[in-house]
C-alpha cells in the first residue's frame, strides 16, 4: 500500500505472508515504510504486529519451523531471499524490545558490545562511540560517572534508553521499537517518546504500540492490522480523524482491542 509518492521509500513490503508452522500470522501484507519517518503499527494483541516487525531485521529466522513468502525490499534489495547476509541486515536495522533487556554487564560494555562483535578493536573509537550513543539516547548526563557499573542497577526507563543507545552504537539506518514503553511509567514513557521524535531526524523508525495515543503523538504514518491483515495505512493525522475502514473506526473508538 503506497500512500505518498513524494516520500523516499526505505522498506517496501510486497504481498508478504508469514507462517508459524500451520498458523498463518501475516496475510498478503503490502506496505511502504518511508525514509526518516515514524511509522506506527497498531492493532489488537495477536494481530501480527511483532511478527511483521521481526521480519524487518530477520529475527524470525531464529524461530524454528517458520516460513515467509513475498518480497521485502530494503533499499531495493530483497531481504527474504535465501542468500541474504543476516548480520549486515541486523546492523542496518536495529531493534528495541518490549522489555528492557540490557546484558548483565556494565553500562559501557553493553554499548561497546555491538561494536566488538562487529570487529571494532580501536579502544578510543569505542570510547567515543559509547559517549556519542549515550548522548543521542539522552542518558549520558545520568550515567557518565558510573559507566563501569552494572546496567542492571539502572531504572526501567534508563535501561530502555540504554538499549536504545546500544542499538545506536552500531549506526543503524532503521530502528524497530516493539512496544518500547509497555513496561514503563508515564514519565519514562514521555522521555522515550521525546527521544523517538528526536531520532527520526536521522533514522527511519517503525514502532509497534498498544497505545493509540502514543501512535498519534509520535508517528507520521499509522498502519492498522487486524488478524494478520493490514486493514488501513495512512498518514497518522488522517487516520485518526477520518478513518476510511469501519474496522479502523471501531478500533480507534475503543469498541474492541
Amino acid at each position: 500500500m503506497s500512500i505518498n509518492n513524494e516520500e523516499k521509500i526505505k522498506i517496501k513490503a510486497d504481498n508478504i505472508n508469514f507462517y508459524y508452522g500451520q498458523s498463518h500470522a501475516i496475510k498478503n501484507l503490502s506496505i511502504d515504510i518511508y525514509d526518516k519517518k515514524v511509522t506506527a503499527f497498531i492493532g489488537p494483541s495477536g494481530c501480527g504486529k511483532s511478527t511483521f516487525l521481526r521480519m524487518l531485521n530477520k529475527m524470525n529466522d531464529l524461530v524454528p519451523n517458520t516460513r515467509a513468502e513475498g518480497t521485502l525490499l530494503f533499499d531495493g534489495q530483497d531481504i527474504l531471499e535465501k542468500n541474504t547476509d543476516v548480520v549486515s541486515i541486523r546492523k542496518k536495522v536495529g531493534m528495541v524490545f518490549q522489555k528492557p533487556n540490557p546484558f548483565p554487564k556494565t553500562i559501557f560494555q553493553n554499548i561497546a558490545y555491538g561494536l566488538e562483535v562487529n570487529g571494532v578493536k580501536d579502544k578510543d573509537f569505542i570510547r567515543k562511540r559509547v559517549e556519542d550513543s549515550l548522548r543521542k539516547a539522552a542518558l549520558w548526563e545520568e550515567v557518565k560517572t558510573r559507566l563501569h557499573t552494572s546496567a542492571l542497577m539502572l531504572s526501567g526507563g534508563q535501561q530502555q534508553r540504554l538499549c536504545i543507545a546500544r542499538c545506536l552504537a552500531v549506526e543503524p539506518q532503521v530502528i524497530l521499537f516493539d512496544e518500547p514503553c509497555a513496561s514503563l511509567d508515564p514519565i519514562s514513557t514521555n522521555k522515550i517518546e521525546e527521544l523517538i521524535l528526536e531520532l527520526k531526524k536521522f533514522y527511519t523508525i517503525v514502532i509497534v504500540t498498544h497505545n493509540m495515543q502514543q501512535a498519534a503523538r509520535v508517528s507520521d504514518y499509522t498502519a492498522f492490522m487486524y488478524l494478520g491483515e493490514l486493514i488501513e495505512f495512512d498518514k497518522t493525522a488522517t487516520m485518526f480523524t477520518v478513518p476510511k475502514q469501519p474496522k479502523t473506526e471501531e478500533y480507534l473508538s475503543g469498541k474492541f482491542g
Binding site: M59, E116, V117
Partner: peptide, 24 residues
C-alpha cells in the same frame, strides 16, 4: 531476551554463546 538482544546487534551464534550466554 539476552540472546535476542545480541543477535539483533549483528552477533552470530558463536559470539552470542561466548560473550553473552556463558558469562551470564
Amino acid at each position: 531476551s539476552f540472546k535476542e538482544a545480541s543477535y539483533a546487534l549483528g552477533a552470530n551464534r558463536w559470539q552470542t554463546l561466548i560473550k553473552v550466554v556463558i558469562p551470564a
